[in-house]
Structures are given as C-alpha cells and as structure tokens.
Design a protein around this nucleic acid. Structure first.
Length: 907
RNA sequence: GUCUAGAUGGUGAAAUGGUAGACACGCAGGACUUAAAAUUCUGUCUUUACGGGUUCGAAUCCCGUUCUAGACACCA
C-alpha cells in the first residue's frame, strides 16, 4: 500500500512533527466544533474548568482532561454529536495577590496565564471546541452572572408551591391580603400584617420586610480579619490563629455581608441526589453537608429569670438525664441573662476565645473549654436544676446555638419511633415541639476583594437596571485593601449610580437622593462557576444568557469530570443555582450534571520551612525544637536544590517579604521539611506537563497518566515508568513500519483464528473498560495486544485498522498518522468503534484448579463442554488425587464452574 | 473533632468471594555495538497496614485499631 501521509520524512516515530501536524489539522479543519444541529443524538462532556494561575496547567488538571477527552473521542466514534468545551474560572484570589505584590493589573496577568493554559491544552491534543470558550472575568460573561444575582435578589421562596417566585408577585399578595397566608423562607418570623397595613408602610419599612424574603439578602457575619494585611482571610489562609502569609494575628470581626438563601432549597437538593448518577461517596458527602436531622425544639425556663431558652436536640428522649446546657458564645441571649456576679468571668472568657475561628473550634471540640454563667434552667420533666454554661465549641450557626449535654450517655442508636413518642410527650406537656433541622446554612456571597464580579447594587436602593449590565469592574490605583478593613473597591472614585441617567458616575456627585454609592464588595469565585455549564450551550453572543432552543437540545451535562474536593462547594452551589433558574423557567432540567466521575487527586510533594513567630528568623529542619513557637511557611518546590536543601539565593529573590529573611542553617545548609498533599498552585508543589510533553510527546503523556492507576484513585505524582509507555507507543509504530517503510500488506491475506481472537478480545476489553472508566487496565490490554501482534509479526490491515480506531481516543496523534498512512483522507475520529463477536473469544478448553481446603494444588485441562460430574470423576482419577486420597478423607467437594474443584480435608 | 476515601513487591499497579502480584517501571546479568543510545533475551519481589469475625475458601464481606489523603462554608 502506498503511504499517504502529509508527513513525508523518515519513517521513525518522530512524535514532535506528527503531533504538530495533526494538532494543526484539527484546528484548521474545525472538526471538533460542536454544531447546534439538532438531528443527531447529543453528548455533552465537560471538565471542571481551570483557574488560570501563574504556575500553569499541572499534571493533576490534565489527568481529568485526558479522561474526558478519551470519552468525548469515543462518543464521537459512536456517532454522537459531542459538545466538549472548556473555559477559564478567571476571577480569584491568587491573581489579586499577584497584583498586590507586583502591581500588575489582574487583567494582564489573567490574559498571560490563559495564553499559557491554552497552549498547554492544545499541545496535549484535546478535542475541544474553542469557539465556545468562556472566561468568568469577561464582562460579556459576568454581565449574566450579575443578571442572575438580580434574579435572586428579586425572588422569594414560596413554601407552598415549593419554588422561587419573583418579589413582585409577593408584593401583589401583600397588597391583596397582607401576609396572613404567605408561607415563605425568611430570616426571622415576620409579624402578621393586613393588606391595609402593608399599604401604609413607608418604602423603607417595606424594604425592611422584603429583605427577610429575598433570596439574596444582607446579614451580619463573622470574618477572619487580619489587621496587618488589612484584609479578610479564608479559613484556609489562617493557620493556628495566624495568617499563612506573614504570620500575623487574625481576629474575628463582624461585617455586613450579602448572603444567598440556599437553605430554602435543602429538600430539593437532597431529593435530587436520587436522580443523578454520581459516585455514592460524593452523594454521601452532600447528604451529610445538608445534614437533615429530626428532633425537637425544647423550651427551658431559667430559674429566677423571665427568659426562656430554646434548645434543639436530636435526642429528645434524653431529656430526663440532661446534665447541663451549653450556649454558643455568639448566642445573642447571653448579654440579657448573664448574672452580674459572673459578668467579669464571662467577659474574660469571651476575650480569651474571641480570635478562634470556626474551624479551630471544631478541630478542638474534643477539648471542652467553657464557663458557668451562674444560672440554672428547670428540667420540665424531672424538675431538676440544670446549670447553664457557655462554650466556644458550640456553634451558633447550628440549631439554636445551644446544646443539651448528657453525661454518661452511651450514644446508643435509638429507633425513630422512640424519638416520635418522646416528641409526643414533649408536645403534650407544652414544653416544645418536633422540628427538622439542617446543617446547611445560607451562604455568604460577598467578598472584600477586588478581582471578582461587582455586585450590581447601589446602596439604599436595590439592583441596577438589568439592561444596563454589565456593571464593569472599576479601575483602582492600588489593589491593597484599605486599612480600616473595607474592600479595595472603596478606592474607586467613579463608583456611584445615577438613578435618573442610569449610569455610573463620580463619587463626588453622591447626593443620597438619586445618586448613591455602588456596593463595594464583589462576588465569590463560586458565582461564575455555578452556571458556566449552561453558557457553553449557546452560540450567539449576548441577547440572553441562554438560547431556549440550544438549552432544549443540550439540556444538561452528560458526563462531568473533576476532583471530589469540590463536593461541598461548587457542586452544591451549581445544583442550587440550577434549581433556581428552573423555577423561573429559564431552563428545563432539575440537575446540571447527570453523571459525574470524580477523578482522584494527583498528590505532590510540598516543601515548607519554619519561621519563628513574630521574627524574620527561619530554622533549618534539624534545629526546630518543640518549645519554640514556629509557623510553617509553604515554599515553592522549585526553590529546592535537591532533596530537601533550599537554594537560599533563589528563595530570597522569590518574594519581597523574604528578601530580608534570616536563615539559620546547619553546617551551611538549610533543610526544608516535606509533606505529601494535593497538587495545587496554592501549595507550590505543581508539576507541569510541558517538559514530559517535549521529551516524550503528548500521546505518551496521555497514556502514561491513564496507566498510572485507576482514574478515581488519588495518587502521588511520579514519572518513573514513563519510559515503558513510550516504548509501547514505539512498538505500536513499529508494527506498521519496518526499516523505515510502511509495511501494511496491500493484499489482505485472511487473518488466522489467533489474530481474530486478539482483535476481538481487545475490542471487548476496551468497550468494557470504557464503560467503567477503567482506563489503566485498558492500556495494559493494549500493551498485551501490541506485544502479541508484534510476536507474530501481524501486518494485516483487517486486524490493524480496527485497532487504530480503538486506540485513537487514547493516543489520537499517532492513530491519526497511521490512519492516513493506511490511505484514508478523513480523520480517524468519526469512524465507528469496532464491534466484537464472542465466537472468536470463547475458549475451547478450560483450566481447572484443584484445591485442598481452598489452597491451590495443581491444574487440569478440560474441553469447555465437559460437565461437572465427569470433571470431578476425572479429577478423582488423577494420579496425584489417588495418591492424596490414600492418606486423607474428604468431607466435602465444592465445584466452582470454570475455575476449580475444592476438596475439604479438615473440619 | 466530624464527614468521605484509601493502605497489595524496591515503585505505579492487577485481581471485587475462587491459583495474589497481570501490565509496566526499577534493579542485576547476557546478546548486538569500537563505544554509547536504541533494540533484544534472561533473572529478580512469600502474601495484601494491624487485630478479630463470617465462609469450604477473604486483598475482596463484617467489626475494631493505626496510618495517609480530601472536605469542613472567603484557595479554586
């Protein structure tokens, strides 16, 4: 056969040229662009989009992208219209940090980083549709994120209809009949008012009431405030009460924040889990996160006080044995009830614990720290006096912020009807009622950051006119937060809304009549990522956030791939927004992701060094003693010379803050400590695929990452073993070539039964493994196949051609090259995956293992048609068996079809 | 601390109730070669973290313990 490739050079496997040629071909021919042609059956394959950090795409990202690309390519071969897009989650903290450190505008940094990511993605041969690329920081995109926020703001949740509705419908109800019949999710109980009363309320009063109903609303929340950095920190950025950057003290501070009323959706988020094909572990995590529990709310009257305490308990049946009641430190009732005698002690305690954030309290919750406040409650059943304590291990956000403690209880598992009967008694006595409580709480939506979507609100009044969106992120001169702890946007000078002109105007024009300051906090990173999977469906630019007909066709994601670390964040928020959008009929599905595979995390080997608190001194690892208070500072693994030795020069130049670092060495060398944790830019342990790609090619990297182990399993990154995969690709190439010639036979000799068996076995194996996403075993099956075909020097096109189609999703470049070498002009991508015929695979003989007490002894062969009885007869007549039965008695014989016979000797 | 996973040779792993270690890497030795690379051949790893249970039979199912990773609400 004549060789028919674009490539006409030497016949050795030159992956660099081959991969370049086919990547260009795919880009130019646009074969991976999904058309909204609504005839073919669709398949929407999506990855969790990356955050474009400065450290580039790493081998942990690519693991998931390779899986989805293999799946997408396989589905194309099965005849589906595949949508396989990607974009960038390009708002976020690291870019802002970088701006603070370098003064570089986040827009520029983002652009540079995305360029690098795109290049990396292209070099790996992903069959992505780049025409649908989105960026959350792009105003064309965030215009609609802002628009969705306004829909939340202008909605309330109707408990009767079990869906969100617009606020205008609610005010109509108020005007008609007051709030007597309204059942809605609200922050607190609303006093009853008539339609007449509603009409009399002032605008401010009306708004005050509506705030209780809105699905986006303001409330007071605690934040981690770092005075020295002048910023709010994530719990993640706080280590042992100090900031991870710089090691400064962190305080708890109250701030007014925007929230989203996810609590209204708890039941639907729970029941929806039954409808989706997600890993059980992931569903379990969400289940626990929502944390529905049945119990009772109990009222305890406080002795010598008019106050009544409300306590939620999951174990109302223990009420007789309650030893004491513990209140959360943030519980608002404390200041009303604490007795004068204990005031000082309580204040001291409050002072002591005030800087512990929630995570610290949770992690230390086994160590009880608390204080008696001088009051007793009356047990309504036993009439005993119960002392009341105060403790920071009780969380104010769960239940009523108070817990009942029963000493010596054994935490027995109690039957539900027992809970019911105890609730019944409680109701009879009039001291409480049955109640369902959820762990899931409303989610804080505002961030005191620059690099996020502006919240389209101006103060005193509500949202900015929808058709004036996007509200563009304003320019500021420096990205530092202000010292008083407000947000970077406070520095924007042109950040006020003119109600009449409906435009952004200078702050100098604020008059509080029709020109107001615009909200200065921004949205969290999860906002943009909560609806991006919908945006990929559309093709037109900007008339709506989604075209109805595109949504009707693509509906939702058929396969979503990403890390399970997103279980309680992104994956629950996206489901929440999806339900909300469905309520307003913008979309027609309940769930955004029908099927989800959680890829295992790639773990990296991070490095850190220890800094003595409140100094600039760093200790080499051998010098650290337990007495010293040190803080662990993560450092980039590229700053290490070898093993654990720090390159001091590089380190000092790494960041401004370390230039003056005082490094205390051991014999002139500074040793770091290492720890294995997930690969992440924030942990500075990132390994990029670029080097491997350059050395071995994309096909090798793709197959290597799949060969590394099961997709779903976490695994540390190692690159030994990549040679073996490269050899395999070479062997594949050599199967088609000999001494520089393409040697696939022109005239096709009829393949032997053995060759058919090889082909049909691998076809079945690949189809099965594709179904279970068992790509590592698929690769070893390919290796075995290629080894077998090489051994018999198979050059037959009717055997090799289907194998090229089968391997194309895994190693698309070499497959495309071989495909064209075989004389084809089209891409290998759309050729049907071969089917297998069981008759070529079935075995004529079976191996039967003979076991004694389950231990293997020897093996015999039988024709597959031989029945159980004659197998046992013939085994018993085997010389070894005759020998054996002379000295042993068998109690039992167990026949295991296709496998063996087990003789039980002992009892 | 709570929730979710995981633990198998020197290394990545396979086997999901039936011969543990397929497929690779590494290492050692040989062939080819002036040499190296490439290629190729041969050899190499004793029991599944620990303790108990169920079973004719357990890496696999159940209970307990230890260790590791992830999540815990402002990293994404």
């Amino acid at each position: 056969m004549e060789r028919n490739s674009i490539l006409d050079i030497s016949m050795t496997y030159t992956f660099k040229k081959i991969e370049q040629i086919w990547q260009d071909y795919w880009r130019i021919s646009k074969i991976y662009e999904a058309n909204n042609i609504y005839i073919k059956e669709k398949c929407y394959v999506l990855d969790m989009f990356p955050y474009p950090s400065g450290s580039g795409l790493h081998v942990g990202h690519t693991l998931g992208y390779i899986v989805s690309d293999i799946y997408a390519r396989f589905k194309r071969s099965e005849g589906y219209n595949v949508l396989h897009p990607i974009g960038f989650d390009s708002f976020g903290l690291p870019t802002e940090q970088f701006a603070i450190q370098t003064g570089k505008h986040p827009i520029i940094t983002t652009e540079t980083n995305i360029k690098r990511y795109k290049k990396q993605l292209e070099e790996l041969g992903f069959s992505l549709d780049w025409t649908r690329e989105i960026r959350t920081s792009d105003s064309y995109y965030y215009r609609w994120t802002q628009w969705i926020f306004l829909q939340f703001l202008n909605s309330w949740y109707d408990k009767k209809l079990k869906k969100s509705r617009y606020i205008v419908e609610l005010t109509k109800i108020f005007e008609r009949e007051g709030n007597w019949k309204v059942k809605a999710f609200t922050v607190s109980k609303i006093k009853k008012f008539s339609n007449k009363a509603w009409k009399r309320f002032s605008i401010n009063k009306k708004e005050e009431i509506l705030q209780n109903f809105r699905l986006a609303y303001r409330s007071i929340a605690f934040v981690n405030w770092c005075k020295d950095l002048g910023t709010v920190l994530a719990n993640d950025e706080v280590k042992d009460g100090r900031s991870e950057r710089g090691g400064y003290l962190v305080y708890q501070k109250k701030m007014i924040q925007w929230n989203m009323r996810i609590s209204a959706f708890t039941e639907r988020l729970l029941s929806g889990l039954n409808k989706i094909e997600w890993p059980n572990a992931l569903k379990e995590i969400q289940h626990h996160w929502i944390g529905k529990s049945y119990g009772a709310k109990l009222f305890f009257s406080i002795i010598t006080h008019s106050f009544c305490l409300e306590v939620f308990t999951k174990q109302p049946y223990t009420i007789f044995e309650v030893s004491f009641i513990v209140l959360a430190t943030a519980s608002p009732v404390i200041k009303f009830i604490v007795t004068d005698r204990y005031k000082k002690e309580v204040e001291e305690y409050m002072q002591k614990i005030k800087n512990r954030n929630e995570r610290l309290r949770r992690s230390k919750s086994h160590i009880f720290s608390g204080i008696f406040i001088g009051l007793y409650a009356r047990n309504p059943f036993s009439k005993k006096e119960i002392p009341i304590y105060l403790s920071d291990s009780v969380l104010s956000s769960y239940g009523t912020g108070a817990v009942l403690v029963v000493l010596n209880s054994e935490g027995k598992c109690i039957l539900p009807h027992y809970i019911k009967s105890s609730i019944k008694k409680i109701i009879e006595k009039g001291v409480g009622y049955g109640m369902i409580n959820y762990r899931l709480r409303d989610v804080v939506f505002s961030r005191q950051r620059y690099w996020g979507e502006p919240i389209p609100i101006y103060l005193k009044k509500n949202g900015i006119t929808e058709n004036k969106l996007p509200l563009l992120l304003p320019e500021i001169d420096r990205y530092f937060p202000t010292k008083i702890g407000s947000t970077p946007l406070k520095k924007a000078k042109h950040w006020s809304w003119d109600e009449i002109k409906k435009e952004v105007v200078s702050n100098n024009l604020i008059n509080k009549k029709n020109r107001y300051l615009i909200e200065t906090s921004t949205m969290p990173a999860w906002a943009g990522s909560s609806w991006y999977m919908l945006r990929y469906m559309k093709q037109k630019i900007n008339e709506s956030f989604l075209e109805a007909e595109a949504e009707a066709y693509w509906t939702n994601v058929d396969l979503y791939i990403g890390g399970s670390e997103h279980a309680t964040g992104h994956l629950i928020y996206a489901r929440f927004w999806h339900l909300f959008l469905k309520d307003h009929q913008w979309i027609n599905t309940d769930e955004p992701f029908k099927k989800l595979i959680s890829q295992g995390m790639i773990l990296g080997n991070s490095a850190f060094i220890s800094k003595i608190n409140d100094t600039q001194q760093f200790l080499s690892s051998g010098l650290i003693k337990n007495i010293q208070k040190v803080q662990k500072v993560p450092i980039d693994i590229h700053l290490l010379k070898n093993d654990n030795i720090l390159d001091i020069e590089k380190f000092k130049n790494w960041r401004k803050e370390f230039y003056k670092a005082d490094l205390i060495t051991e014999n002139g060398q500074f040793f770091c400590q290492r720890v294995v944790e997930k690969m992440s830019k924030s942990k500075f342990n990132v390994i990029n695929p670029d080097k491997i790609c350059a050395q071995f090619g994309a096909d090798t990297l793709r197959i290597y990452e799949m060969f590394l182990g099961p997709v779903k399993q976490d695994k540390p990154w190692i690159d030994q073993g990549i040679n073996g995969v490269h050899h395999f690709i070479n062997k594949l190439w050599m199967l088609f070539h000999n001494k520089g010639n393409f040697v696939i036979e022109d005239s096709d000799f009829s393949p032997s039964l053995k060759e058919y068996k090889i082909l049909h076995s691998i076809t079945r194996k690949i189809r099965e493994d594709m179904y279970f996403f068992s790509f590592n075993t698929a690769i070893s099956a390919f290796m075995i196949t290629i080894n077998e075909l090489s051994a018999i020097k198979c050059r037959k096109i009717s055997i090799l051609e289907p194998i090229v189609i089968l391997i194309a999703p895994f190693a698309p470049h070499i497959a495309e090259e071989l495909w064209h070498c075989m004389g084809y002009k089209n891409s290998v991508s759309f050729n049907p995956i071969p089917i297998y015929d069981g008759k070529y695979i079935s075995e004529k003989t079976i191996q039967v293992s003979i076991m004694f007490d389950g231990k293997f002894s020897f093996q015999m062969h039988f024709s597959s048609e031989v029945k159980e009885k004659s197998i046992i007869d013939r085994v018993l007549n085997h010389p070894k068996m005759i020998q054996f039965s002379k000295i042993n008695t068998f109690f039992k014989v167990i026949f295991i079809p296709y496998l063996g016979v087990n003789f039980i000797v002992s009892r």
